[in-house]
Amino acid sequence: MKYMRDSFLESVYQQMSYNGKIFVLSADVGAPALDKIRKDYPSRFINTGIAEQNTINVATGLAMEGYQVYVYGIAAFFLRAADQIRNSLLLYHQYSPLNINILSTGKGISYETAGPTHHCLEDLPVFSAFPGFEIYVPSDATMARAMAAQLIQNGVRYFCCDGKKVALIYNDDFCFDLSDGYITRNSGEKSCIVTMGGMLSFAEEILKVMRSKGIEIGLIDLFTPTEFDKDKLLSILNNYSKVITLEEGYREEGVLSVQIQKLITGTCIKLHKFGFDRKYIFEPGPREMHYKNAGITINNIVNVL
């Protein structure tokens, strides 16, 4: 189990030793790896305070002057800076490419007991509507590190990390090819689960249950839910009669359900969506409780499969 954000920032820290163009901003959110950056590269790290709008504007100004900027903060509060992400950052980026990487923590209901102000089921649907904003959802700490190490060219990216430690799915020596936007975890017979982020480890459990019943199901880790290779993924999904989207987002409006629905329109594939009801959740409790309340249980999914 490891925090995605730590692996990501460890890679950024390593890169800072040989890349003097890297600048890191934090909107007053901490992480152990960030402490190392703060200590060893004090001139290229700033805690911008509880001020997400200004943090994005400052990042834009730094990037316009040639810096490769990393911005770290809490997912729910980057929505507060949606105007700055769109008007300051992305509009400019369309004319003169920038290198800005927004690292968010607290995806979905990671902050399970903190209530709806800290839950974030809307960032991906909102940000996926912004032209030029690349969205990445690492499914474990190994993938988060690979993303930080590989995605260093110009681009404006949103890395959406779970707020909790997540089980390691990929081994350290796993060779990530991020170009297709997805990884096929397993091939199956009739049904296939498409998921992303921390939900992948939950889907792996379902895979085991089905295997114990003698049934192989497909499993796709769609870590880039908007900019994936649509032709390639459709050719894979066409091998199945049933596709299940499984996400810590709204059941109908979640970025996975919308993208996969769009992708398979016109095919004979039946789509089942697992996600949250479109309402705010005030009841505190562990993640499992929230999943159960939303009908996201192994039994329910196995029954559909």
Binding site: I46, Q53, N54, I56, N57, V58, A59, T60, G61, L62, A63, M64, E65, G66, Y67, D83, Q84, N87, S88
Partner: peptide, 12 residues
């Protein structure tokens, strides 16, 4: 938003 962007530039 101009002042915030300018802050980033001034830092750079």
């Amino acid at each position: 938003n101009g002042l915030g962007i300018a802050c980033g530039m001034a830092l750079a």
